[in-house]
Design a binder for these strands. Structure first.
Length: 490
RNA sequence: GCGGCUGUGGUCUAGCCUGGUAAGACUCAAGCUUCCCAAGCUUGCUACCCGGGUUCGAAUCCCGGCAGCCGCACCA
């Protein structure tokens, strides 16, 4: 059982994550990454890039701005759809989402209606507060986007982007040409997105500014799927929960109604969590969303959920969304810029498969799943993601051991993220490294002074091996890259 | 946004009811000690969420704000 108070305490004490602007009392929905959190986040992002760009030679990274002009988000539908019409009872003050209230009472689809239209509907059907039958206020449009004024007089309206994807969609055609018209094409990006959540809570899980890592894959169904079919492994096993069903581990090919391009990427996403984040398959599931839960433009939608005790259960950390041609069609129509590509003499607008990851939620998952406070407090992180790969200590602080340990540290620090310490006892230093997830600790003792060998201590087992200083680079590299396990060196 | 609870060194807590200039544990830093898993010793840094009010005097009582937790609502 993860003690989330203890985990939070470690995060603050050691330098991972804490509330932003805290010296002024803080503001809900914003978090800072300290020096260890920043290392962990950078490492996760690097691993994500290596893995997902590695899926295909035509998958690439791009970066686009945080601020988008009004017209972009008008075209994407966010100005109209990314908002809630709120209403409250004038007697008992209870607040409601106006569209839900109207739908409950008169059974009509009010999606996309403006505040004025909803007010008219409420008046027409004489709808009152479901709690106390009191009269309802006029409804109020609440858009989840942060608006910004661009330019000296603010004459250009814009928004902080509510998702990183729109910047990518707008670049589809330029990159299609720059990449010499090769399809399928993948454009990935990592960056911040902003949503003015009504009630951000649960630490880093619902933020107003958060990181997204997204890969948008462009292709034309029936034309460009061969690439995926070749890579697809029907026997790959994934943990899924279908609508109205229990969680079960099955071969991905048993997901019969899904196209291969979808199953291929779904299984690769699952593999990222098991192989790169080292999460137990039992703690990960792919959950199919019902029609109600899915955004209207998503044709197929599975969320990746991880069981996080600190947040009370299964929590969404990523999603695989088949968005069809919705986005490119909208941008072609509103911008007047061609988004279609020539296929057998016709022009076709490509479809999009989106792999979307919440960066902060993924970082939190590593901390939650990795934290143990049984006999000791320790973090079990994948070695290549840990803030430090290796720490170097003198066993005791005399007889030249500290100087020798600095020599070893200097040999390692250009190749690894290394840390050197001499304060307290060696046990204390191991404990400190346990707490921040440093997988390996090297100790210089009296034998080192005779024969230039050192001990390497493993965070998981606390076992030690003895190795010559000259072999440290190779041993650490094979351990961090998982070419060999620690026990194979025992 | 509504209701309930809460806010004290880096972390976690005591003190608050019954106003009189803050205590402990751990952590951290410097040093001593120490031949492998938070030992011990010495010294040291660091706090009453913010603002206003009552009072000779406020961590303590009152009001307002902010933040956090729980519940409701929300989560394109």
């Amino acid at each position: 059982m993860v003690d989330s108070d203890e985990l939070e305490s470690v995060c603050k004490r050691r330098g991972f994550i804490w509330q932003s602007s805290e010296i002024y009392g803080g503001e809900a929905g914003f978090y800072d990454y300290g020096h260890l959190g920043a290392l962990l986040k950078d490492n996760w992002e690097r691993s994500w890039k290596e893995y997902f760009l590695g899926l295909d030679d035509n998958y690439h990274m791009i970066y686009t701005p945080n601020i988008l002009p009004y017209r972009v988000l008008k075209a994407s539908g966010h100005v109209d759809m990314f908002s809630d019409v709120l209403i409250h009872c004038m007697r008992c003050e209870t607040g409601f989402r106006a569209d839900h209230l109207v739908e409950d009472v008169i059974d009509m689809n009010v999606e996309g209606l403006s505040a004025e239209e909803i007010d008219k509907t409420i008046e027409k059907h004489d709808i009152t507060c479901p709690n106390c039958k009191g009269a309802l206020s006029e409804s109020d449009d609440f858009n989840m986007m942060f608006s910004v004024q661009i330019g000296p007089t603010g004459e250009h309206k814009g928004f902080l982007r509510p998702e990183t994807a729109q910047g990518t969609y707008m670049n589809f055609f330029r990159e299609f040409r720059a990449l010499r018209k090769k399809m399928p094409m993948g454009l990935a990006t990592i960056g911040s997105a902003f949503r003015n959540e009504i009630s951000p809570r649960k630490g880093v899980y619902r933020l107003r500014e958060f990181g997204q890592a997204e890969l948008q894959i462009f292709f034309v169904p029936g034309i460009h799927e061969e690439v995926f079919e070749k890579k697809y492994n029907a026997e790959y096993r994934v943990n899924v929960m279908l609508v109205d069903d229990d969680t079960k581990l099955i071969e991905v090919d048993e997901l019969k109604d899904l196209p291969i391009f979808y199953k291929y990427h779904l299984s690769k996403v699952f593999e990222f969590f098991t192989d790169k984040m080292n999460l137990d398959p039992d703690s990960i599931r792919l959950r199919e969303l019902s029609d109600d839960e899915r955004a209207f433009y998503n044709r197929i939608h599975f969320d990746v959920e991880i069981f996080l005790e600190s947040l009370g259960g299964w929590k969404e950390v990523a999603g695989v969304h088949y968005r069809g041609d919705y986005d490119l069609t909208k941008h072609q129509k509103e911008s007047g810029t061609k988004m279609s590509i020539p296929i057998e003499g016709e022009r076709v607008i490509p479809h999009v498969l989106e792999l979307s990851f919440g960066v902060d939620r993924n970082i939190w998952s590593l901390l939650d799943r990795g934290f143990g406070d049984d006999d000791r407090k320790w973090l079990h992180l994948p070695a290549d993601l840990a803030p430090y790969h290796v720490a170097v200590f003198p066993l005791i602080r005399k007889d030249g051991l500290p100087e020798k340990s600095i020599e070893v540290y200097n040999r390692l620090k250009s190749r690894f993220r290394a840390f050197w310490d001499k304060s307290g006892s060696v046990g204390k230093r191991y404990a400190r490294m346990d707490e921040i997830g440093t997988p390996f600790c090297i100790t210089i003792d009296y034998d080192t002074m005779d024969d230039d060998t050192v001990t390497i201590r493993d965070i998981v087992s606390k076992d030690q091996i003895r190795a010559p200083i000259t072999e440290l680079n190779d041993i650490l590299r094979t351990l961090i890259n998982k070419e060999k396990t620690f026990s194979e060196y025992l």
